[in-house]
Structures are given as C-alpha cells and as structure tokens.
Design a protein around this nucleic acid. Sequence first.
DNA 1: CCCTGATTCGC
DNA 2: GCGAATCAGG
Length: 201
Amino acid sequence: MSWTDERVELLKKMWSEGQSASQIAKELGGVTRNAVIGKVHRLGLSNRTGPGAAPAAAQPAPAEPAPQPAASAPPRPAAPKSKPRPEPEKPAARAETPEPAVPPISAARKAIIPAGQPLPPQPSANEISPEALAKVSEVEKSAKRISLMELTERTCKWPIGDPATPDFWFCGLPVQQGKPYCEAHVGVAFQPMSSRRDRRR
DNA sequence: CCCTGATTCGC
DNA sequence: GCGAATCAGG
C-alpha cells in the first residue's frame, strides 16, 4: 500500500478528528500504526496541540529560524479548529474512586428472582442512564457466559444471573483496559457521580 | 498487559 | 519517503 492522495486525506481527517494512529491504520488497512505515525510526522501535522504552544526551542538552531520565504501560502494554517485537550492537566491527588455502583447482586436475599430475565440490574440508588442499561441488556444476551474459573485479566467480570442457581455466569467480554468490566458494564458500574451524562457514538 | 504517540535509522 | 523497531509514557 502506498500513500495515495485519498489515503493521506483520510489520514489527515481522522488524525484531526483525534483518532488514534492504530484506529487510522486499521481503517486504512495495509498499514501499521507505526506507518501512520511516521506519515503523520512527515506531513508535519504531528502535535495536535494548539499552535499557541511555543516549543521553547531546546535546540536553538541558530542557523535557520526558517521563516519560510514562500510568497503566498501561510506555512502554518494553525487551524484554530476545535482541538480540546482531553487532559488539560492532572491536578493534585485526584481520588479516582467514583464509587462503584455495586454491580453484584445481594444474591441470597432476592433468591426468588426468576432466573431467566436479565434482572433489572439496579436495585435503587442512582439512576443509570437508560442507554447504558439498554446496552448492558444487549450485551448480556450475547455475553460469553464464562464461568468463574474462566475469568482472566481481560474478561469482563460482571456477574449475570443468580449465583444461587446454576443459571449464573460472567459476562466474559473483553474488558475495557484496566477496568474489570467490558465497556457496557463499566458504563453502569462506574457512575460519573452526577447521575447521567449523555454520550453519542 | 493493554494501549498511546515519538524517534531512530536502514531501506 | 517509508515504516519496523524501539523508546517513553499511561
């Protein structure tokens, strides 16, 4: 595969959209994320950081400040495009404890639950975005249904069903990096603190 | 371990 | 110019 205009365009587009190199590579096909990153650099559109940031020149490069004598075309469109830095700064100690919404059921107590229907995940407390819940029920239908022993570092450990019955298993879908659950379950397990939040995709 | 982008350097 | 290998974080 070579860097045709189209491919480069898509690359630019996706990169400016904040897509990761690997995603772009996957989309393009035939290239690795390394290739994408390499290209990105060669194209000079690496730092998605706002232009306002002066690199503070570690290397003075005394010989040539490179004023770019080009008659027209501004060297740096600088695109004031929306380039929100997802992570502005890490304050001090940020207690990363969103208080898990207690996914597991209290089992015994409600042992009478008809072990068939995907039990309405949450008892009380906060309201989880209907979206997330819907997502979960969906996922649970196509979950891998793995057993306790099959759980690994990267399998969603969200319990489904009633532990008191044989009709009990774990989600088993790929976890969302770091977390113990898959994306869907992470969605209901960890609340942003302030009830709901919208999200599109 | 999974992932991210950044750099290097032989091709 | 290209991108695998490597480096440096998260």
